[in-house]
Amino acid sequence: MINTIFLYALAGVGLFSLGLYALIVHAHLLRKILAINIMGSGVFLVLVSLADRTQGIAPDPVPHAMVITGIVVAVSATALALTLMLRVRSETGQAELLEEPPK
């Protein structure tokens, strides 16, 4: 039982790290936005899975509530990001951020 809990938490770390990698290497904004969401899922998985270390009694509800709050924040931010992406595309013709001149 305990081992599965930590396995889920480690999977959360995995998602967080994969998302971070994808966020950095992909240029397309849609992929970047998806990568951020995957990172977020990783954090949520860590929060929720470790809440079940209560030894038989019901899991700790506080991290669950935090995750619901986090999901709403993530949905809101994603909506803003997607709209912004569409606007960037309609202004510049592509859904990527050009490298800025080296400063």
């Binding site: 967080f16 931010a77 990001a81 960037v88 951020l97």
Partner: peptide, 19 residues
């Protein structure tokens, strides 16, 4: 266009920092 691109980058950085 430059403001939108700057805002987009800012949003990604901001979300990354928050996570």
């Amino acid at each position: 266009a430059s403001a939108l691109a700057a805002a987009m980058r800012y949003l990604l950085i901001s979300l990354l920092g928050s996570l």
